[in-house]
C-alpha cells in the first residue's frame, strides 16, 4: 500500500499520483478518441482537406487532370469579378433566394397552422402536406418539366382557360427563373412544413388556454404567442432554406440547363460546368471559395440580426 498510516494532522496526502503515467492520465481522452475516430477521419478526408485544397487550387491554373500548374495569385478571382457570366450567376442566385426562401417559409407556416387545427382526419392532410419531402429533386423536376411543357403541360392549359396567352415557361428569360423557383418552393414545402409543424406542436397548450381565459382571439394569439414561441424554429428553417438555395443544382440541370441566356445559371451549376464540363478546376475552385464565403457571410449576418429577435425559452 502506498499510503500506510496516513496522518490526520492536517497534512493532506497528495493523491495527484506521481506514479500515474501520462498514458493513464489521458485514458479518457483516448477512449473518447476511439469513439470519435471514424468521424474525424471522414471529416478530415472529405470536408477539411477538400476545403483547404479548394482554397489552394483557387490560386492556380490547372491542367486537364485538375492538377495545379501555375500559381496565379488572385487572378482567378479578378477574372471572375470581371466576367459578366459569373456576375450574372451571382445575381441569379440572389434572385432565386429572394423568390424561394421567404415564400417557402410563409407558405409552410400557413400550412402548419392549418394542420395544427384539431379536426377529424387531420393526419391525412398532414401527410399530404409533407409529401414533397418524399419526392426527389430528379423526380420533381421531371414532373414539373412536363407541367411547364408549353403545348402539353397542364399549366398553360389552365391559364388559357382564363384567356391568358400561353407562356413558354422554361425558354422565356422572363419566366425561367420563376418557373425554377416554383418547382423549388414546392420541393421545399414538405421539409419546411414538417419542421414548423413540429415547432407548433411543441408549444405548451396551457399558454393558449390561459390567454383564451383572458379573452384573446385567434389572431392575437398568433401574433403574441405562436409567432414568438415559434421564432427559433422559423429561424432554423430560414437558415436551412437559405443554405439549400445557395446549393441548388438538380432543378437547374434538369429543367433549364442554366438557360435561357444564363438567366438560371445558379452558382453551383456554373461551378459544375466549369469544373466537370470544361475541367477548369482553378476557376471553379475560385467560384467555390466565393460561394463558401457568401454562405458564411449570409449565415453570420442572419445570426447577428435575426437571432436577437428570436425568442428562446
Amino acid at each position: 500500500m502506498a499510503m500506510e498510516n496516513p496522518t490526520t494532522t492536517g497534512q493532506v496526502p497528495s493523491l495527484n499520483m506521481p506514479y500515474r503515467t501520462f498514458w493513464e492520465k489521458t485514458r479518457r481522452f483516448q477512449v473518447a478518441l476511439l469513439f470519435l475516430l471514424p468521424s474525424l477521419i471522414l471529416f478530415s478526408v472529405f470536408v477539411f482537406y477538400p476545403l483547404f485544397r479548394t482554397i489552394y487550387l483557387s490560386f492556380f491554373l490547372t491542367n486537364q487532370k485538375g492538377l495545379p500548374t501555375v500559381f496565379v495569385g488572385f487572378d482567378n478571382f479578378i477574372q471572375l469579378f470581371q466576367s459578366a457570366d459569373f456576375l450574372q450567376s451571382v445575381k441569379a442566385t440572389f434572385l432565386f433566394i429572394l423568390y424561394t426562401v421567404p415564400a417557402s417559409v410563409v407558405i409552410s407556416l400557413f400550412l402548419a397552422l392549418l394542420a395544427n387545427e384539431k379536426l377529424k382526419g387531420i393526419h391525412f392532410f398532414r401527410t399530404i402536406f409533407a409529401s414533397s419531402l418524399g419526392v426527389s429533386v430528379a423526380a420533381a423536376s421531371v414532373t414539373w418539366l412536363f407541367i411547364f411543357n408549353p403545348t402539353m403541360g397542364v399549366l398553360n392549359r389552365i391559364i388559357s382557360l382564363f384567356g391568358i396567352q400561353e407562356i413558354n415557361w422554361l425558354a422565356d428569360p422572363h419566366w425561367a427563373l420563376l418557373a425554377v423557383s416554383m418547382t423549388t418552393i414546392w420541393l421545399n414545402l414538405g421539409f419546411s412544413f414538417l419542421i414548423i409543424f413540429g415547432g407548433l406542436q411543441n408549444i405548451d397548450q396551457s399558454l393558449y388556454e390561459s390567454s383564451s381565459i383572458d379573452g384573446a382571439g385567434y389572431f392575437y394569439q398568433l401574433r403574441r404567442i405562436t409567432i414568438p414561441m415559434l421564432s427559433p424554429t422559423l429561424f432554423f428553417i430560414m437558415t436551412v432554406s437559405l443554405i439549400n438555395a445557395f446549393q441548388t443544382f438538380g432543378q437547374i440541370d434538369l429543367l433549364t440547363g442554366g438557360g435561357p441566356g444564363q438567366t438560371t445559371n445558379l452558382m453551383v451549376y456554373a461551378i459544375y460546368k466549369d469544373a466537370f464540363v470544361n475541367f477548369n478546376f482553378g476557376k471553379a475552385s475560385a467560384e467555390v471559395v466565393i460561394l463558401f464565403l457568401l454562405i458564411l457571410i449570409v449565415t453570420l449576418l442572419q445570426f447577428k440580426f435575426v437571432e436577437k429577435k428570436v425568442h428562446y425559452q
Binding site: 471529416f43 485538375g66 445557395f246 478546376f281 467555390v288 463558401f292
Partner: peptide, 24 residues
Amino acid sequence: FLFFLFVSTMMIPWEASIIPNFVT
C-alpha cells in the same frame, strides 16, 4: 474544441468540397 470542429463542418456545404473530393 472537437465539438466546435464538428459544428464548423455544418458551415461547409458539400458543394464547397466537391472538386477535391472528386479527385480523391
